[in-house]
């Protein structure tokens, strides 16, 4: 039995569930966190979304049928939670204010980037939410399009096109600064 299959068995077993879930969290927390953080930027928001993701995963353990890997399943929940969070946040405040965003990044104690990295964050922020998620997964996390396709449930062709547009827009943003 593989490690993953063994972990799934323990997650389905009432007595071992809590310990197995802690192992699952330890195994995937960093990848999930960075996926979320790159989308929401701020640490406190990323922490909230990640904890909600894990709570939802816990509540949905009985519905996990093993059709995908545990990591992919968690990624899907995290993506869904992140998109919901961003939708609610957009309703509350305008995201068009570039200067306010830059100021927020400069004041963020958990952001160490220089001016170029601030500009990159701004360029990424201007992408539509799904395109931004695809860009982050491919550019920073170097995930294969096939893996991203499993998370999104979208065709590889559509993802390649989405990534192409994202890279093109970000390149154009930097050209406009020159």
């Amino acid at each position: 039995m593989t490690d993953e299959a063994e972990l799934i068995n323990r997650l389905k077993n009432g007595k071992q569930r809590e310990q197995a879930f802690t192992e699952l969290v330890r195994c995937h927390q960093e990848r999930l966190y960075w996926q979320i953080r790159r989308m929401v930027v701020n640490h406190e928001d990323a922490d909230d979304v990640l904890q909600n993701t894990l709570m939802k995963a816990w509540a949905a353990l009985d519905t996990f049928r093993g059709e995908s890997k545990l990591g992919t399943w968690l990624y899907q929940i995290a993506l869904h939670e992140t998109m919901n969070f961003l939708r609610k946040k957009k309703q509350m405040l305008s995201i068009d204010d570039e200067q306010a965003f830059m100021a927020q990044l400069s004041a963020d104690p958990y952001f160490d980037g220089d001016e170029t990295q601030q500009q990159l964050q701004q360029a990424i922020r201007m992408l539509p939410d799904k395109q931004r998620a695809v860009f982050n997964m491919k550019y920073f996390e170097e995930m294969k399009f096939e893996e991203i396709s499993e998370v999104f449930g979208t065709s590889v062709g559509a993802l390649k096109a989405s990534y192409h547009f994202a890279v093109k827009k970000i390149t154009a943003y930097f050209e406009s600064l020159d």
Binding site: E18, F21, T22, V25, R26, Q29, E30, Y33, W34, R37, R38, V41, H43, D47, L50, Q51, L54, M55, W58, Y110, F111, D112, G113, D114, T116, Q117, Q119, L120, Q121, Y139, F140, F174
Partner: peptide
């Protein structure tokens, strides 16, 4: 032009305490 380094950080000990905090919430 811009590299792909991660400019973000997390508070110290964040990942080591996260599983326990999630368990408490559960």
């Amino acid at each position: 032009q811009v590299g792909k380094e991660n400019p973000f950080r997390v508070p110290e000990g964040y990942f080591s305490t996260l599983p326990d905090r999630v368990c408490v919430r559960i």
